[in-house]
Amino acid sequence: MSDTYVLILLCAVVTYIVRSGGYVLMSYFGTVNHRVEAGLNAVPIAVLSALVAPTVLNGEWPDAVALIFVCLLSLRLSMLPTIALGVVFLVLLRQYA
């Protein structure tokens, strides 16, 4: 099996563990400590923002401006129109700025 398929299957396993893990934990322990719960709630915010942060400082300036534009838009619009407008905005910036 090639490396790519190993990676795909491992990602599938990790995703499955996450999707079944909460049920397994709950049926063993019943409740979760408030700190653990707060930590769990923070996981997507913390990791995703850590993932994106360097993109803002590392790329060309239109990239950074477009990303900030998208963040502001997403306060008002739902995800799909936000990203669509963000991509259009980025293309225009790269073209004319």
Partner: peptide
Amino acid sequence: GLDLMLPMFFATLVISFRQTSGFAVILITS
């Protein structure tokens, strides 16, 4: 401009969690 679509997708995901308590502190720290 689709090369930046993934970062945009992640950024909007992060913003969608803004009701979580302590959002700003978590965001700034990370």
